[in-house]
Amino acid sequence: MNAWIDSTRAELRRLMLWPATWVLGGIWITLLFAFVFAFPYIAYRSGDQDAFQGGPTSELLASMLPQAAPASLIQGTPMFGGAVAMIFAALVVGNAYGWGTWKTVLTQGPGRLAATGGTLAAIGACVLGLVLFSTVFVLGMSSLVAAVESQDLVWPDWGETAASMGGTALVLGMWASGGAFLGALTRGPALSVGLGLLWTLVVENLLRGVAQLIDGLPAVVDRLPGSSAGSLAGALSSASGDAEGTPGVLDALSGPVAAGMLGGYVVVFLVLAFALVERRDVA
């Protein structure tokens, strides 16, 4: 057990000192700020109904207030957040091969399971940290909007907020596990990031387009990682706000089914990542 803790601490230290960790986290927060607050606010101020994703201006304002925070938090995860988490994990694991640091780490004697577990746990800790910070950020920004627009400060339902945080963690965690798996599979940062992005941004959308041609394919496509993530985001955001029209947010699966699929993917990706590092030679 000590080896697991030592490995996690060592890996966390090097991730916290890695500029890429902060750059990627910063990108996610910037996207969150831009698409949840900045653009809707500009549209709201302009009073033009068609300026940003349409809808009456009162709805636009409501989407920026604390009550909509649970939806605000999760609606960006299927597309941008997932991609950011996947890139991060793929870089962490892939670069360890590229830099030759796996070799250094494994020869320190933690054992391959503990070394892999430490790396994955450190990635998980970063994802959880990001979820916590995003929650605080969204609540803070929405309170600011409420104050500026002289709206009553009504906090969101805390149960819904917790569910949204859990869902966000699950979606980001699923993509991060996928990235870690790809990093271990391709043993390098470039191919793993490329393949991951190709999947999240292109392949699933194309499959969605052709699914109708083959019997039974739609059901499969609905259960792919991106669709499951989109469905969970759809299910969790519909309660507190309307996320329809947000790219990647779907209603293909019910919330529990989507969460179950995501949990399954996390387990599969992690097991594959462990198996790949455990069994293959480090050359």
Partner: peptide, 23 residues
């Protein structure tokens, strides 16, 4: 076959990371 370290960390930080792995 050549040292494998984190390029963005200082020499000292690299060794500290390795030291943590070694306990």
């Amino acid at each position: 076959e050549g040292p494998g370290f984190y390029p963005y960390l200082s020499g000292l930080e690299n060794l500290r990371v390795v030291a943590r792995y070694r306990g």
